[in-house]
Amino acid sequence: MRPDRGLAPGGARPERVTVMQGQALVSNDPNVEFSTVLGSCVALCLFDPEARLGGMNHFLLAEPPANSSVSTVDEYYGTYLMELLVNQMLAKGARKAHLRAHLYGGANVNRNMMRIGSANAEFARDFVAREGIELLRSDLGGGNARRVDFRPASGQVRCRTVEDRFAPPVQPTTRPAKATGDVELF
């Protein structure tokens, strides 16, 4: 094993920041590593190699149900979090033409439930293709949970399967504070 494995530039251990369900985070700090655990949820890791800037989101469900009467934006849906991540990247200096994507998650970990993971994976693939973002790598589907570690300033990603018991629940028990800021849909 190489002695520098797991070290950030300059030899320091990276600061690990957990990306929770309903979050989208962006950084250009070479000492930051985003980390999340996914079951049926999906995470998009975006990177602009020119700006040396990256971000990760973690969404629970692709879209609200068609019969939903919810009039407010729900930060747990991919329809919101995908746009939010792209907009945060652009606001910090990324250029859409330079964006590169990695997609992870979308497992169907509970065989007795609807295929939520498959729907999430399909939504994420469609979003990246529709937006014209180059997809460098994806590890979607299957039946196993995954742990994803992403260094946003360099675009390095590591994805490992984990025991299903470590996968987050499909329905959150607590919600983070409501997201603030504007989202521009394009």
Rank of each mutant, 00 (worst) to 15 (best):
L38V: 09
A129C: 01
L46S: 04
L99C: 07
V32Y: 05
M113L: 14
A124K: 07
D48P: 10
V42S: 04
D164C: 03
G141A: 04
S138N: 13
V26G: 00
E83H: 13
N87D: 12
M113G: 02
D139G: 02
T180L: 09
M113E: 09
V73C: 11
K178A: 15
T79K: 15
G181F: 06
V37T: 15
Q21W: 00
F47Y: 15
Y104N: 15
A129V: 05
A177S: 08
V157K: 07
S154C: 02
V109L: 12
K96Q: 08
R115E: 15
M20E: 11
A8H: 05
V26K: 04
A62V: 06
V162A: 02
M89I: 08
A101I: 01
R111H: 12
R165H: 11
Q88S: 03
L136D: 03
H58S: 06
L140S: 11
G117C: 05
V109C: 11
N67F: 08
N144W: 02
V42H: 04
N110Q: 10
P152L: 10
G132S: 10
F127Q: 10
K178M: 04
P152G: 03
Q21P: 13
A8Y: 08
M20T: 03
R146V: 07
P65M: 04
E33F: 00
G143A: 06
L7C: 06
C41E: 05
G78Y: 01
A51R: 04
E122W: 11
P152E: 10
G78N: 07
L25F: 10
Y77T: 14
R111C: 03
A153D: 13
I116N: 04
L7W: 02
T36F: 10
A43P: 14
L46A: 04
P152A: 07
A179T: 12
K178C: 09
H102Y: 10
L135E: 02
I116D: 09
R130E: 14
V170L: 14
G105E: 09
T174D: 05
S40M: 09
K96M: 03
N31I: 00
Y80H: 11
L99E: 03
M82R: 04
E134C: 11
N28S: 14
S27D: 08
D149F: 08
V183I: 15
A101G: 05
V32L: 00
E50I: 06
G155R: 09
P3C: 12
R160I: 09
G78K: 05
T79D: 14
